[in-house]
Simulated assay, not measured.
Amino acid sequence: MKKLFFILSFLLCQCSFAQKTLPILKSNAKTIKIREGKSEIHEQHPIAKANPDVYVPKPFTKTQEITYISDIDSITFKVEMNKIVDFLIVQNGKDTIKTQINTNRNQVISYPKYAYTKNKSAKHDTIPFSIGEDSRIYLKGSINNSDTLTFLFDTGASGMVISTPLIDKKVKVKLDGSFLNVGSDGVERVPTSSQNKLTINGLTWNQVPLLAIDFGDSPFDAVLGWVAFQNKVLKINYETKKMIVYDSLPPISGDFRKVDFRLIDGIPYIKCKMIVNNTEYEEWFDFDSGSDGSLSISKEYFTKHNLAGKLNKLGESGWIGTADINIVTDVLLLRRLKIADFELYNIQLSVPQKDPDTPDRLGNIGNLILKRFTTIIDFRNNCMYLNPNNLMYSRMD
Protein backbone atom coordinates (compact mmCIF):
# COMPACT_ATOMS: atom_id res chain seq x y z
CA MET A 1 0.00 0.00 0.00
CA LYS A 2 1.12 3.53 -0.73
CA LYS A 3 1.01 6.29 1.83
CA LEU A 4 1.42 10.03 1.68
CA PHE A 5 3.88 11.36 -0.81
CA PHE A 6 4.19 15.08 -1.01
CA ILE A 7 6.44 17.67 -2.48
CA LEU A 8 6.97 20.90 -0.59
CA SER A 9 8.38 23.34 -3.15
CA PHE A 10 9.95 26.56 -1.94
CA LEU A 11 10.17 28.53 -5.15
CA LEU A 12 12.94 31.02 -5.83
CA CYS A 13 11.04 34.04 -7.08
CA GLN A 14 13.53 36.80 -7.74
CA CYS A 15 11.20 39.27 -9.39
CA SER A 16 11.45 43.02 -9.76
CA PHE A 17 8.58 44.90 -8.17
CA ALA A 18 10.25 48.26 -8.60
CA GLN A 19 10.02 50.66 -11.49
CA LYS A 20 6.49 49.66 -12.52
CA THR A 21 2.95 50.33 -11.45
CA LEU A 22 1.26 47.24 -10.02
CA PRO A 23 -2.42 46.45 -9.37
CA ILE A 24 -3.48 46.92 -5.74
CA LEU A 25 -5.91 44.96 -3.58
CA LYS A 26 -7.09 46.78 -0.44
CA SER A 27 -7.78 44.86 2.75
CA ASN A 28 -8.47 45.51 6.40
CA ALA A 29 -8.34 41.79 7.35
CA LYS A 30 -5.45 39.37 7.75
CA THR A 31 -7.10 36.65 5.66
CA ILE A 32 -7.64 36.82 1.90
CA LYS A 33 -9.90 34.46 -0.02
CA ILE A 34 -8.66 33.16 -3.36
CA ARG A 35 -10.95 31.73 -6.00
CA GLU A 36 -9.61 29.54 -8.77
CA GLY A 37 -11.99 29.46 -11.72
CA LYS A 38 -15.65 29.78 -10.87
CA SER A 39 -16.08 28.06 -7.55
CA GLU A 40 -12.99 26.72 -5.76
CA ILE A 41 -12.06 29.04 -2.88
CA HIS A 42 -9.03 28.88 -0.58
CA GLU A 43 -7.87 31.11 2.23
CA GLN A 44 -4.47 32.74 2.23
CA HIS A 45 -2.64 34.58 5.02
CA PRO A 46 -0.39 37.03 3.15
CA ILE A 47 3.07 37.21 4.72
CA ALA A 48 4.85 40.53 4.22
CA LYS A 49 8.30 39.15 5.00
CA ALA A 50 7.99 36.50 2.27
CA ASN A 51 8.93 39.18 -0.33
CA PRO A 52 6.97 38.20 -2.35
CA ASP A 53 4.12 36.16 -0.89
CA VAL A 54 3.63 33.50 -3.58
CA TYR A 55 0.44 31.71 -4.55
CA VAL A 56 0.76 28.64 -6.82
CA PRO A 57 -2.59 27.58 -8.33
CA LYS A 58 -3.47 24.08 -9.42
CA PRO A 59 -2.37 23.12 -12.96
CA PHE A 60 -4.86 24.10 -15.66
CA THR A 61 -5.12 24.22 -19.45
CA LYS A 62 -4.92 27.42 -21.51
CA THR A 63 -6.06 30.16 -19.09
CA GLN A 64 -7.57 30.42 -15.63
CA GLU A 65 -9.21 33.25 -13.70
CA ILE A 66 -7.72 33.80 -10.24
CA THR A 67 -9.65 36.16 -7.96
CA TYR A 68 -8.40 37.60 -4.67
CA ILE A 69 -11.22 38.65 -2.34
CA SER A 70 -10.68 40.75 0.79
CA ASP A 71 -13.18 42.09 3.28
CA ILE A 72 -13.47 45.35 1.31
CA ASP A 73 -12.12 44.69 -2.18
CA SER A 74 -11.50 42.12 -4.92
CA ILE A 75 -9.25 41.74 -7.94
CA THR A 76 -9.31 39.22 -10.80
CA PHE A 77 -6.44 38.09 -13.06
CA LYS A 78 -6.67 35.98 -16.21
CA VAL A 79 -3.48 33.94 -15.96
CA GLU A 80 -1.64 31.55 -18.26
CA MET A 81 0.55 28.57 -17.41
CA ASN A 82 4.27 29.28 -16.90
CA LYS A 83 3.60 32.95 -16.22
CA ILE A 84 4.01 35.26 -13.25
CA VAL A 85 1.57 37.95 -12.11
CA ASP A 86 2.79 40.56 -9.61
CA PHE A 87 0.55 42.82 -7.56
CA LEU A 88 0.30 44.46 -4.13
CA ILE A 89 -1.96 43.95 -1.15
CA VAL A 90 -2.32 47.04 1.03
CA GLN A 91 -3.54 46.23 4.54
CA ASN A 92 -5.17 48.84 6.75
CA GLY A 93 -4.17 51.55 4.30
CA LYS A 94 -0.48 51.39 5.26
CA ASP A 95 1.16 47.93 5.13
CA THR A 96 2.12 46.86 1.60
CA ILE A 97 2.63 43.16 0.85
CA LYS A 98 4.35 42.19 -2.37
CA THR A 99 2.25 39.37 -3.82
CA GLN A 100 2.65 37.00 -6.73
CA ILE A 101 0.67 34.39 -8.65
CA ASN A 102 3.19 31.92 -10.06
CA THR A 103 2.16 29.25 -12.59
CA ASN A 104 5.71 28.39 -13.65
CA ARG A 105 5.85 24.59 -13.31
CA ASN A 106 9.56 24.59 -14.26
CA GLN A 107 10.61 26.90 -11.44
CA VAL A 108 13.83 25.89 -9.68
CA ILE A 109 13.19 24.23 -6.32
CA SER A 110 15.18 25.27 -3.26
CA TYR A 111 14.77 24.70 0.44
CA PRO A 112 15.13 26.64 3.66
CA LYS A 113 18.23 25.79 5.65
CA TYR A 114 17.14 22.94 7.90
CA ALA A 115 20.39 23.10 9.86
CA TYR A 116 20.34 21.54 13.30
CA THR A 117 22.40 22.27 16.39
CA LYS A 118 23.76 19.71 18.84
CA ASN A 119 23.21 19.65 22.56
CA LYS A 120 26.52 17.87 23.03
CA SER A 121 29.79 17.57 21.16
CA ALA A 122 30.31 14.41 19.11
CA LYS A 123 32.05 13.30 15.94
CA HIS A 124 28.68 12.23 14.58
CA ASP A 125 25.07 12.26 15.71
CA THR A 126 23.00 9.16 16.41
CA ILE A 127 19.21 8.94 16.26
CA PRO A 128 17.54 5.70 17.44
CA PHE A 129 14.43 4.56 15.63
CA SER A 130 11.90 1.76 15.61
CA ILE A 131 10.51 -0.21 12.68
CA GLY A 132 6.72 -0.31 12.71
CA GLU A 133 4.56 -3.25 11.74
CA ASP A 134 4.20 -1.39 8.44
CA SER A 135 8.01 -1.62 7.92
CA ARG A 136 8.50 2.14 8.18
CA ILE A 137 10.93 4.20 10.30
CA TYR A 138 9.60 5.95 13.42
CA LEU A 139 11.40 8.51 15.60
CA LYS A 140 10.53 10.27 18.85
CA GLY A 141 10.78 14.05 19.25
CA SER A 142 8.87 17.26 19.86
CA ILE A 143 7.68 20.41 18.11
CA ASN A 144 7.74 23.76 19.91
CA ASN A 145 8.56 22.07 23.24
CA SER A 146 5.52 19.79 23.05
CA ASP A 147 5.17 16.44 24.75
CA THR A 148 6.74 13.51 22.92
CA LEU A 149 5.54 13.02 19.34
CA THR A 150 5.99 10.14 16.91
CA PHE A 151 7.67 11.12 13.63
CA LEU A 152 7.62 9.17 10.39
CA PHE A 153 10.99 9.54 8.65
CA ASP A 154 10.18 9.99 4.99
CA THR A 155 12.84 10.31 2.29
CA GLY A 156 9.92 10.77 -0.12
CA ALA A 157 9.07 14.10 1.53
CA SER A 158 10.91 17.34 0.84
CA GLY A 159 9.55 19.11 3.90
CA MET A 160 8.07 18.59 7.34
CA VAL A 161 4.44 18.02 8.25
CA ILE A 162 2.30 17.96 11.37
CA SER A 163 -1.07 16.27 11.71
CA THR A 164 -3.71 19.01 11.75
CA PRO A 165 -5.84 17.63 14.67
CA LEU A 166 -2.85 18.01 17.02
CA ILE A 167 -2.60 21.77 16.57
CA ASP A 168 -3.60 23.71 19.69
CA LYS A 169 -4.37 20.43 21.46
CA LYS A 170 -1.03 18.66 21.74
CA VAL A 171 1.23 21.10 19.88
CA LYS A 172 1.27 24.90 19.75
CA VAL A 173 1.62 25.89 16.09
CA LYS A 174 0.83 29.25 14.50
CA LEU A 175 -0.67 28.82 11.04
CA ASP A 176 0.32 31.83 8.95
CA GLY A 177 0.08 30.76 5.31
CA SER A 178 -0.96 28.07 2.85
CA PHE A 179 0.65 26.03 0.10
CA LEU A 180 -0.34 23.85 -2.84
CA ASN A 181 0.70 20.36 -1.71
CA VAL A 182 1.28 17.92 -4.56
CA GLY A 183 0.55 14.39 -3.34
CA SER A 184 0.64 10.97 -4.91
CA ASP A 185 -3.13 11.05 -5.29
CA GLY A 186 -3.61 14.66 -6.36
CA VAL A 187 -3.14 18.26 -5.29
CA GLU A 188 -4.58 20.07 -2.31
CA ARG A 189 -4.07 23.48 -0.69
CA VAL A 190 -2.99 23.04 2.93
CA PRO A 191 -2.20 25.43 5.82
CA THR A 192 1.43 26.19 6.65
CA SER A 193 3.40 27.50 9.61
CA SER A 194 6.66 29.39 9.01
CA GLN A 195 8.56 29.37 12.33
CA ASN A 196 8.84 26.27 14.51
CA LYS A 197 11.33 24.45 16.73
CA LEU A 198 11.98 20.76 16.15
CA THR A 199 13.85 18.57 18.65
CA ILE A 200 14.86 14.92 18.13
CA ASN A 201 17.26 13.04 20.39
CA GLY A 202 19.35 16.05 21.42
CA LEU A 203 19.32 17.68 17.97
CA THR A 204 17.47 20.96 17.49
CA TRP A 205 16.21 22.57 14.28
CA ASN A 206 15.01 26.20 14.55
CA GLN A 207 12.84 28.32 12.24
CA VAL A 208 11.37 25.20 10.64
CA PRO A 209 8.44 25.65 8.20
CA LEU A 210 5.67 23.05 8.51
CA LEU A 211 2.70 21.91 6.48
CA ALA A 212 -0.47 20.87 8.30
CA ILE A 213 -2.24 17.78 6.92
CA ASP A 214 -4.86 15.56 8.55
CA PHE A 215 -3.30 12.08 8.72
CA GLY A 216 -6.48 10.52 10.09
CA ASP A 217 -5.75 7.39 12.12
CA SER A 218 -2.12 7.06 10.98
CA PRO A 219 0.35 5.78 13.62
CA PHE A 220 2.42 8.99 13.51
CA ASP A 221 1.96 12.62 14.57
CA ALA A 222 4.37 14.30 12.16
CA VAL A 223 6.61 13.68 9.16
CA LEU A 224 10.33 14.39 9.04
CA GLY A 225 11.51 14.83 5.45
CA TRP A 226 15.00 14.23 4.08
CA VAL A 227 15.76 17.97 4.02
CA ALA A 228 16.41 17.82 7.76
CA PHE A 229 19.76 16.29 6.77
CA GLN A 230 20.59 18.29 3.66
CA ASN A 231 24.34 18.77 3.17
CA LYS A 232 24.93 15.80 5.50
CA VAL A 233 25.68 12.10 5.11
CA LEU A 234 23.02 9.84 6.61
CA LYS A 235 23.47 6.16 7.45
CA ILE A 236 20.33 4.10 8.07
CA ASN A 237 21.05 0.80 9.81
CA TYR A 238 17.98 -1.42 10.18
CA GLU A 239 19.90 -4.04 12.17
CA THR A 240 20.97 -1.65 14.95
CA LYS A 241 17.87 0.55 14.43
CA LYS A 242 19.97 3.68 14.39
CA MET A 243 20.43 6.58 11.99
CA ILE A 244 23.88 8.16 12.10
CA VAL A 245 24.49 11.66 10.74
CA TYR A 246 27.98 12.56 9.49
CA ASP A 247 29.46 15.82 8.24
CA SER A 248 31.51 13.93 5.65
CA LEU A 249 31.53 10.49 4.10
CA PRO A 250 32.78 7.84 6.58
CA PRO A 251 34.95 4.86 5.55
CA ILE A 252 32.85 2.45 3.47
CA SER A 253 33.51 -1.27 3.19
CA GLY A 254 33.74 -3.07 -0.12
CA ASP A 255 30.41 -4.79 0.54
CA PHE A 256 28.56 -1.60 -0.30
CA ARG A 257 27.57 -0.69 -3.85
CA LYS A 258 27.42 2.90 -5.00
CA VAL A 259 24.15 4.10 -6.53
CA ASP A 260 23.72 7.58 -7.96
CA PHE A 261 20.51 9.42 -7.20
CA ARG A 262 18.90 12.50 -8.64
CA LEU A 263 16.42 14.93 -7.16
CA ILE A 264 13.23 15.01 -9.20
CA ASP A 265 10.79 17.69 -7.97
CA GLY A 266 12.79 17.75 -4.74
CA ILE A 267 12.60 13.98 -4.07
CA PRO A 268 15.52 11.48 -4.31
CA TYR A 269 15.17 8.91 -7.09
CA ILE A 270 17.40 5.93 -7.92
CA LYS A 271 17.47 3.71 -10.99
CA CYS A 272 16.16 0.15 -10.69
CA LYS A 273 15.64 -2.58 -13.26
CA MET A 274 12.47 -4.65 -13.45
CA ILE A 275 13.12 -7.93 -15.24
CA VAL A 276 10.11 -9.38 -17.06
CA ASN A 277 10.53 -12.45 -19.31
CA ASN A 278 14.30 -11.77 -19.47
CA THR A 279 13.73 -8.19 -20.64
CA GLU A 280 15.06 -5.39 -18.45
CA TYR A 281 12.97 -2.27 -17.89
CA GLU A 282 15.07 0.42 -16.27
CA GLU A 283 13.37 3.40 -14.63
CA TRP A 284 13.85 6.04 -11.95
CA PHE A 285 12.11 5.12 -8.70
CA ASP A 286 11.29 7.44 -5.83
CA PHE A 287 13.44 6.31 -2.88
CA ASP A 288 10.56 6.49 -0.42
CA SER A 289 11.14 5.36 3.18
CA GLY A 290 7.74 6.83 4.02
CA SER A 291 5.96 4.24 1.88
CA ASP A 292 4.81 1.00 3.51
CA GLY A 293 4.71 -0.69 0.11
CA SER A 294 7.25 -2.46 -2.07
CA LEU A 295 7.25 -1.26 -5.69
CA SER A 296 4.88 0.69 -7.90
CA ILE A 297 4.82 2.12 -11.40
CA SER A 298 2.32 4.31 -13.18
CA LYS A 299 -0.43 3.02 -15.44
CA GLU A 300 1.09 5.17 -18.16
CA TYR A 301 4.45 3.37 -17.89
CA PHE A 302 2.75 -0.03 -17.65
CA THR A 303 0.79 0.62 -20.85
CA LYS A 304 3.65 2.27 -22.76
CA HIS A 305 5.88 -0.79 -22.29
CA ASN A 306 3.15 -3.33 -23.08
CA LEU A 307 3.43 -5.10 -19.73
CA ALA A 308 -0.22 -6.17 -19.67
CA GLY A 309 -0.49 -9.95 -19.74
CA LYS A 310 3.19 -10.44 -18.90
CA LEU A 311 2.77 -10.37 -15.10
CA ASN A 312 0.44 -12.53 -13.01
CA LYS A 313 -2.21 -10.61 -11.09
CA LEU A 314 -2.31 -11.35 -7.36
CA GLY A 315 -5.27 -9.14 -6.48
CA GLU A 316 -6.26 -5.54 -5.89
CA SER A 317 -5.56 -3.00 -3.16
CA GLY A 318 -6.32 0.63 -2.42
CA TRP A 319 -4.75 3.58 -0.67
CA ILE A 320 -5.61 7.17 0.14
CA GLY A 321 -3.03 9.94 -0.09
CA THR A 322 -2.87 13.49 1.22
CA ALA A 323 -5.62 14.73 -1.13
CA ASP A 324 -8.03 12.15 0.38
CA ILE A 325 -8.63 10.44 -2.96
CA ASN A 326 -9.01 6.64 -3.06
CA ILE A 327 -6.67 5.00 -5.58
CA VAL A 328 -7.38 1.39 -6.60
CA THR A 329 -4.36 -0.60 -7.78
CA ASP A 330 -3.75 -3.96 -9.41
CA VAL A 331 -1.18 -6.02 -7.49
CA LEU A 332 1.05 -8.02 -9.83
CA LEU A 333 3.90 -10.47 -9.29
CA LEU A 334 7.30 -9.21 -10.44
CA ARG A 335 9.72 -12.14 -10.42
CA ARG A 336 12.98 -10.15 -10.41
CA LEU A 337 14.11 -6.66 -9.43
CA LYS A 338 17.69 -5.41 -9.71
CA ILE A 339 19.12 -2.57 -7.61
CA ALA A 340 22.78 -1.90 -8.42
CA ASP A 341 24.00 -5.52 -8.80
CA PHE A 342 21.72 -6.89 -6.08
CA GLU A 343 18.66 -8.89 -7.08
CA LEU A 344 15.38 -9.39 -5.22
CA TYR A 345 12.71 -11.91 -6.13
CA ASN A 346 8.92 -12.23 -6.13
CA ILE A 347 8.11 -8.56 -5.61
CA GLN A 348 4.55 -7.27 -5.33
CA LEU A 349 4.23 -4.61 -8.01
CA SER A 350 1.37 -2.11 -7.71
CA VAL A 351 -0.12 -0.44 -10.79
CA PRO A 352 -3.04 2.00 -10.43
CA GLN A 353 -6.07 1.16 -12.51
CA LYS A 354 -6.12 4.86 -13.34
CA ASP A 355 -3.26 7.28 -12.77
CA PRO A 356 -3.99 10.08 -10.28
CA ASP A 357 -3.83 13.68 -11.43
CA THR A 358 -0.20 14.34 -10.46
CA PRO A 359 2.84 15.28 -12.55
CA ASP A 360 4.85 12.22 -11.49
CA ARG A 361 4.79 9.30 -13.90
CA LEU A 362 7.87 7.49 -12.64
CA GLY A 363 8.13 4.65 -10.13
CA ASN A 364 8.13 4.33 -6.36
CA ILE A 365 10.17 1.98 -4.19
CA GLY A 366 8.91 1.68 -0.62
CA ASN A 367 10.36 0.68 2.71
CA LEU A 368 9.20 -2.93 2.41
CA ILE A 369 12.19 -3.17 0.05
CA LEU A 370 14.45 -0.40 1.37
CA LYS A 371 14.61 -1.92 4.86
CA ARG A 372 16.58 -4.82 3.36
CA PHE A 373 19.65 -2.63 2.92
CA THR A 374 21.98 -0.73 5.18
CA THR A 375 22.00 2.58 3.37
CA ILE A 376 24.43 5.50 3.38
CA ILE A 377 23.00 8.59 1.66
CA ASP A 378 25.41 11.36 0.71
CA PHE A 379 23.12 14.35 0.23
CA ARG A 380 26.10 16.54 -0.61
CA ASN A 381 27.11 14.57 -3.70
CA ASN A 382 23.82 12.92 -4.73
CA CYS A 383 24.88 9.32 -4.27
CA MET A 384 24.03 6.35 -2.05
CA TYR A 385 25.80 3.23 -0.88
CA LEU A 386 23.76 0.05 -0.36
CA ASN A 387 24.63 -3.20 1.42
CA PRO A 388 22.17 -6.07 2.01
CA ASN A 389 21.38 -6.72 5.68
CA ASN A 390 19.82 -9.66 7.54
CA LEU A 391 16.37 -8.76 6.16
CA MET A 392 17.44 -9.15 2.52
CA TYR A 393 15.60 -12.37 1.80
CA SER A 394 12.87 -12.20 4.42
CA ARG A 395 9.24 -12.42 3.35
CA MET A 396 7.93 -9.54 1.25
CA ASP A 397 4.56 -9.27 3.05
Results as ranks from 00 to 15, higher is better:
Pro52Thr: 03
Asp53Gln: 03
Asp53Tyr: 12
Val54Met: 04
Val56Ile: 13
Pro59Met: 06
Thr61Cys: 07
Lys62Gly: 03
Gln64Tyr: 05
Glu65Phe: 14
Ile66Val: 06
Ile69Tyr: 03
Asp71Trp: 07
Ile72Phe: 05
Ser74Pro: 06
Ile75Phe: 00
Thr76Leu: 01
Thr76Cys: 12
Thr76Asn: 05
Lys78Val: 14
Lys78Gly: 04
Val79Asn: 01
Glu80Asn: 08
Glu80Lys: 10
Asn82Asp: 11
Asn82Gln: 12
Lys83Met: 11
Asp86Leu: 10
Asp86Cys: 11
Asp86Gly: 07
Asp86Ser: 09
Val90Ser: 04
Gln91Met: 11
Gly93Ile: 08
Gly93Asn: 13
Thr96Trp: 06
Ile97Pro: 01
Ile97Val: 15
Lys98Asn: 14
Lys98Ser: 14
Gln100Tyr: 00
Gln100Lys: 12
Ile101Leu: 01
Ile101Ala: 00
Thr103Tyr: 00
Asn104Glu: 15
Arg105Trp: 10
Asn106Phe: 13
Ile109His: 13
Ile109Cys: 08
Tyr111Gln: 09
Pro112Cys: 00
Pro112Thr: 09
Pro112Gly: 07
Pro112Asn: 08
Lys113Gln: 10
Tyr114Ser: 03
Thr117Trp: 02
Asn119Val: 08
Lys120Asp: 06
Ser121Glu: 12
Ser121Gln: 10
Ala122Arg: 15
Ala122Ser: 15
Ile127Arg: 02
Ile127Ser: 02
Pro128Asn: 11
Ile131Leu: 12
Ile131Cys: 08
Gly132Leu: 04
Glu133Arg: 13
Asp134Pro: 04
Asp134Glu: 13
Ser135Val: 15
Tyr138Cys: 12
Tyr138His: 13
Lys140Leu: 10
Gly141Ala: 05
Asn144Ile: 05
Asn145Pro: 03
Asn145Asp: 15
Ser146Met: 06
Ser146Pro: 02
Ser146Gly: 06
Asp147Cys: 07
Asp147Trp: 03
Thr148Ser: 08
Thr148Gly: 06
Phe153Tyr: 07
Thr155Val: 03
Met160Arg: 10
Ile162Tyr: 01
Ser163Cys: 12
Thr164Arg: 15
Pro165Arg: 06
Asp168Pro: 07
Lys170Ser: 13
Lys170Cys: 04
Lys170Pro: 03
Lys170Tyr: 11
Val171Trp: 05
Asp176Leu: 07
Asp176Ser: 07
Gly177Thr: 09
Gly177Ile: 04
Ser178His: 13
Phe179Met: 12
Leu180Gln: 15
Val182Ile: 12
Val182Ala: 13
Ser184Phe: 09
Gly186Glu: 01
Gly186Thr: 02
Glu188Asn: 14
Glu188Ser: 14
Thr192Asn: 02
